[in-house]
């Protein structure tokens, strides 16, 4: 378990997340891609905290902030999915060519 191997794994998670967020049509699947990207970022933060900063507590703090971002993303994402479904009966990006309400 070296820093390099950890960063490659986190890059792989991030790359898969980018692919998912760009290629999926369903809102919830796009959210899954975003979460994967955050997952990779979090792993990189923890890896650098443990291996490269001599365990400075600020590294763990950064991870807590990423978790907050995840929670905010999930809560707002679900709320928007519900709101859009209610008004447009749409669950896919293609049905939202118009952004006007």
């Amino acid at each position: 378990m070296t820093l390099q191997s950890l960063l490659v794994v986190s890059a792989a998670l991030f790359g898969i997340g980018v692919y998912g967020a760009l290629s999926q049509q369903t809102f919830v699947m796009i959210m899954m891609g975003l979460e994967l990207m955050l997952n990779g970022a979090m792993l990189a933060a923890v890896a650098l905290w443990a291996m490269s900063t001599a365990g400075a507590p600020k590294g763990q703090l950064l991870t807590v902030i990423v978790m907050t971002v995840m929670a905010v993303e999930a809560a707002l994402g679900f709320a928007l999915v519900i709101g859009i479904y209610r008004i447009r009966k749409a669950d896919m990006t293609e049905k939202l060519k118009r952004l006007r309400g």
Partner: peptide
């Protein structure tokens, strides 16, 4: 896009010189 971002980040992870200061406390 996924492959490029993976390759770019992995390259940074492998090539870049991060300080080698493991957690000791």
């Amino acid at each position: 896009a996924g492959l490029v971002s993976f390759a770019g980040l992995a390259l940074v992870g492998i090539v870049a010189e991060f300080p080698d200061r493991p957690r000791t406390s």
